[in-house]
Design a protein around this nucleic acid. Structure first.
Lengths: 348, 348
DNA sequence: AATTAGCACTCAAAGAAAAAGAGTGCTAAC
DNA sequence: GTTAGCACTCTTTTTCTTTGAGTGCTAATT
């Protein structure tokens, strides 16, 4: 083992780590002198220069121009995040802050996750993104129609995860009591227990076809039901703290906007099950599209399965050592909370 | 009349109008030569310079520096908007576009107004703001409670304007059928027909006090009802097209953000009934807070009373001559639509 | 009396040149 | 293997100059 020529010996690793650390804080290219002045590095600038040249050859560093210091490449960040940085511990205050956000008696798992998202955005001064757990686990528990005016009806859909959505429908005719009763019963019989994920056009079409004489009058309501289910699925991904990033001029506002607009598409890619529990994405990873920025996503589990996720979107120069533990702490807590509740209360 | 010395003769007014027109398009200070080359101005640059000096003395123009052209002051904009500009007519395409947005079969008046808001944001490349009509005119038509899980209940509130909101409540105990029936009946008796605007803490307190033995168990639900009504009031003001302004660098992102965050406070000030049907605000008007930008707001009426409003938030250099007719057209159409519907259908 | 040509003047913006400075790579000594 | 020393590179900053748009004033013109 010791016979092998180590291209990346301990000192080089320390130097790389120091460069990334410094660059994350200052945003300026880091020179050999600055590194040499650090307490735990006991070699001269010349030696560091040699190592830096080596690190550049290996693809971990680059020079904006000849007379500048070095900045990390994507590969450099990757190595730093995977192996070099030493995670900071969460301060007691911050821990308390995080706990407080979660201790709130929120009624649903999704609300819990969203409150965590907001807290995280606040704490990190970044944008955060959550993928809610509901669509994956919840089934329809109730579909109701409530008359609210002439030819106006409110469709109501309640899911097992305590989420609820409604939609106002304007019909061509008023419904008779009998029609309404039939609808409610028909829904209860055919949709109760059906997963939100499964309820699409094709299911609705079948239901409409099987409705017999009620078909003409009630079809618009069924269309509404379909749209409600879609609504549940669409609202799966939520962003918080966008404004924290809009102010920064190292991030392209247009790219950021496009990211938010297509968040459903993009974020889904980021949550591929093949990845580990926590991943950091940047550069070209998974069709990632915002220059100079990165995303840290962590999975929320329920009963061993991936349920949702929580992530931070920020500049490339992110304090990973601090923020990654935050996210891990939060997702762990959430995972525990929604699992506990599962046994005790069955509300999530 | 003709004996009076006219400080602001016709030519000076034309020159001021030309300067504002040009500045709105180019954003550059306007010089005497540029004005002189315009077709309907038939005097020499020297004459225009004299007039410009006069206009500056009167407070309508200012010079960024000695060797620059002139730009309008707030007073200059004001005069331009009130008296000088000649409103452009809406192109047939745009009229069609606007009509299409409104012809959509939206279920509620608020949805109608919001769709208009979005269309306007698109068309003007600005942000838009709407104050919905619902809270002012709608009364509660229905309050329901629906059990959705152990100790979990969904509160539902429907208003006469077809709006609906819900809220998940987590109670300490499960409700008996009898308790739920009482609640529904109690709500129907005491809240049906009550205006959203009136339903506040004090009303709820009275209701709780009069509830007798049900007080302890049902009080949390009543609290929820109160919060629902608040929700209706809070969602009164909506912004669209924020991103159109975020990209511009002549508008301070922070100020804009603060404006959006406090929109409820700020926008209310803008809609004081003492103003006319349409007003343009900028500078220090009504505690206005975004530098270099202005707001055009127009009232939406119903039955002769101010019901809501629609506005455009954009840079100071806004094409007022084009946008003001847009807004007038839209608010007129909306005013008509919600009034017609009032007679015919009673759904708004 | 109003308008205009002419001209000196001002000042921001753009460009050019010079100086400063941070950092490197290499060589030779330790 | 490490380090001091030094020439070299290239950006950044500063300073100075030039350019040009636009003005205000004065005197001539209509």
């Amino acid at each position: 083992m010791s016979g092998v020529i180590e291209l990346l010996d301990e000192r080089k690793r320390r130097i790389l780590a120091a460069i990334v650390d410094s660059y994350i804080v200052t945003g300026e290219p880091v020179g050999s002198k600055a590194i040499a002045s650090m307490p735990d590095i006991r070699v001269s600038p010349a030696t560091i220069r040699n190592d830096m040249a080596m690190l550049e050859q290996l693809g971990y560093l680059e020079q904006p121009h000849t007379s500048a210091g070095r900045i990390p490449t994507y590969a450099g960040y990757r190595l730093y995040i995977d192996e070099l940085m030493n995670a900071k511990t969460i301060s007691d205050e911050d821990k308390k802050l995080l706990d407080e956000c979660l201790d709130v008696e929120v009624p649903t798992a999704d609300a819990l996750i969203e409150s965590a998202s907001k807290a995280l955005a606040e704490l990190t001064h970044c944008a955060t993104v959550v993928k809610n757990v509901a669509p994956k686990f919840s089934v329809i528990t109730k579909v109701e129609v409530i008359p609210t005016g002439r030819r106006m009806y409110v469709l109501l859909m309640v899911t097992s995860s305590g989420n609820i959505k409604n939609k106002v429908c304007r019909l061509e005719f008023d419904l008779t009591n009998e029609q309404m009763e039939f609808f409610t019963k028909y829904m209860a019989e055919n949709l109760q227990g059906v997963s939100i994920d499964q309820l699409d056009e094709s299911v609705i079409e079948k239901l409409v076809a099987a409705m017999g004489t009620y078909m003409v009058t009630l079809a618009p309501l069924l269309q509404g039901v379909c749209e409600l289910a879609e609504g549940f699925r669409d609202h799966e991904i939520k962003v918080a703290g966008e404004k924290n990033l809009l102010a920064r001029q190292d991030i392209n506002t247009n790219q950021l906007m496009r990211f938010f607009e297509n968040k459903n598409e993009v974020v889904k890619n980021m949550l591929d099950d093949s990845f580990g529990d926590l991943q950091v994405l940047f550069g070209e990873d998974g069709g990632f599209v915002i220059e100079n920025s990165s995303v840290i996503v962590s999975k929320i589990k329920k009963g061993g399965k991936t349920a949702g996720s929580l992530g931070v979107i920020g500049p490339m120069r992110l304090d990973y050592a601090k923020i990654i533990p935050y996210i891990e702490y939060l997702t762990d807590r959430i995972t525990n909370l929604i699992s506990e509740d599962d046994d005790e209360d069955d509300i999530f």
